[in-house]
């Protein structure tokens, strides 16, 4: 009997660390993160974008983004003057429209523009639009540390995305990512995106980074930064209607 108790004690001691470090399934981590990222009816953020070219004065671009959880976005540029008044509407991954004040009309933009950097930065419309990963990627837990989970994402067969592989580093305390590595088809890391200075709602149901950095490794580690300006505005009551071509015309023209 004593021997049995001893064996059980040893087994429990051996198992204990394993139980303490057992992670939820990577898919659940990802889905939980997506839920938290999209825990709003609509979200309005004002950003200032700067590209930090070495030895050069950083010119700023300012814009407002209204987002819905399904990935619909309305981007309104407010500075500098040569792009002021330009509006971009993202209805879905395949439906994007731009209003250019100089031409006074709404023009559809095809997918070829989606993964090009805008305003000379490393940020693309795809980077801004994607708030869902589980639908497009198979996920695997690479490793975990005391503070982070590291998830490896590979595109699902039949799905078309800009980046076939991504590596997400997710903060355990928030359940939100603080770093993404964008990896091309050949397995080469092209860009790293960092989400810094999270600010959370009082009930912790949603957090938003106040600073987002994009490091482009193919451009000599050039850093583009989006800094949050002003308040984070939740649930102002924007309906689906404002994410329409009609609204774009009405608002912009």
């Amino acid at each position: 009997m004593k021997q049995l108790l001893l064996v059980l004690s040893v087994v429990m001691i051996l198992l204990a660390p394993g139980v303490a470090s057992a992670a939820p399934s990577p898919l659940k981590i990802l889905q939980k993160m997506e839920r938290k990222m999209n825990a709003f009816k609509d979200l309005t953020l004002k950003w200032t974008l700067r590209v930090r070219h070495p030895g050069k004065k950083h010119s700023a671009v300012r814009f407002t983004v209204i987002t819905r959880p399904k990935g619909q976005r309305l981007v309104r540029y407010t500075y500098p003057g040569d792009i002021k008044g330009m509006h971009v509407l993202v209805q879905s991954r395949d439906e994007m429209y731009i209003y250019l004040p100089a031409f006074r009309k709404v023009r559809r933009i095809a997918g070829h523009i989606r993964n090009q950097g805008f305003q000379g930065s490393g940020f693309t419309y795809d980077d801004m639009a994607i708030a869902q990963w589980a639908v497009y990627y198979n996920v695997r837990l690479l490793k975990q540390t005391k503070k982070h989970w590291y998830l490896s994402l590979k595109v699902k067969p039949g799905k078309t995305v800009a980046w076939p592989q991504q590596m997400l580093r997710i903060r355990k305390d928030l359940g939100l990512m603080d770093e993404i590595h964008y990896i091309n088809r050949r397995g080469r890391k092209i860009k790293t995106q960092r989400f810094l200075r999270y600010k959370c709602k009082s009930d912790n149901s949603h957090c938003n980074p106040k600073l987002i950095q994009m490091v482009e490794h193919t451009r000599g580690n050039l850093v583009s930064e989006m800094k949050l300006k002003g308040k984070i505005r939740y649930n102002k009551g924007y309906s689906d209607r404002i994410f329409s071509v009609r609204y774009l015309l009405r608002s912009a023209n």
């Binding site: 559809r108 095809a110 997918g111 070829h112 523009i113 989606r114 993964n115 078309t160 995305v161 076939p164």
Partner: peptide, 19 residues
């Protein structure tokens, strides 16, 4: 107007715009 999808050509997710 719309886009002609290119599938995995050109990095995936791209398409040629047409009108």
């Amino acid at each position: 107007s719309g886009q002609i999808p290119l599938g995995k050509i050109g990095g995936g997710g791209r398409g040629i715009g047409f009108w």
